[in-house]
Structure formats: structure tokens, C-alpha cells
Amino acid sequence: MHPQRQKRLLAVIAIVLVLGAALALVMYALKQNINLFFSPSQIAMGEAPSKTNIRAGGLVVEGSVQRDPNSLAVSFQVTDFQHSVTIEYQGILPDLFREGQGVVALGQLNEQGTFDASQVLAKHDEKYMPPEVSEALKPVEKPAPVATPTYY
């Protein structure tokens, strides 16, 4: 390669590497702010501030969803399989909200350690499959639901 071109190439690579390293350090320092939500373990360890708006996320524990028959109030637990946190929410849940599904809730931790949510978002995983396949994958002993939920 022509020596002058080689010099320019090295200069460009150096600039990109230095800027990349600087940005990587900034993002490492801001890691906690870039994370969208606190996991139940982080909340249990006291890493999450209370009485200020934060997001908490995890999987909804099977059988933990309790709905108030007279209002839209609902309470459920989310877990990361090490710790879990109880979330209380009043409002309409997204269509994909169900037990075993990932959710992200925006709200505040109160003194009792439960999480008062003002917004609940559903998180879905990266797996996609047709309804027939998901039916076939279900364990046999479990009674199948009456109708497959569809969202048209």
C-alpha cells in the first residue's frame, strides 16, 4: 500500500478506536441508567431506590395473579427465579400479559416493599411459532384451554 494511504488508514482506525473506547467507558459507567428496568434480585438487594419512579421487570409467577372482582385492581408477583417482588396495579393490562410472561412495570417501591405500578408493559421473547405447534408442545397431562386465545 502507498505509504501516505497507509498513514491515513492508521489515522482513521486510531480515531475510531479511541472514540469507540471512550464511548464504551461512558456506557459502562452509565450501565445502570441504560438498563430499562431493575430485576427482582436488584430490588431485593436494595439497589433500587424507593419513592422514586423506577421500572421493575421479570416473569409473572404462575398462579400469583389476583384480580379484584369489583375494580380493575390486580396484584401479581414477578420473579427472576432468585427473588420475586409483588406488583400492584390498577388499569388495563396489555393483551400479552399472562402468567409466565415477561413484564416491565413503571412505578414506585413503597415501605412494605411492594411495587405500586402506574403502567405495565408486556415483554415477549424471541420465539415465534404457529398455534398448532405450541399446542403440540404442551405437556399432555395438562388440560388444554377451552379455546386458543386469538387477537384479531
Partner: peptide
């Protein structure tokens, strides 16, 4: 294409 088992047609 088939629809998704969770998201239905919005997938």
C-alpha cells in the same frame, strides 16, 4: 404464513 401462538396476527 401461520400466525403466532401468542401474538396472533400482529406478529
Amino acid at each position: 404464513a401461520p400466525e403466532d401462538y401468542q401474538q396472533g396476527n400482529s406478529f
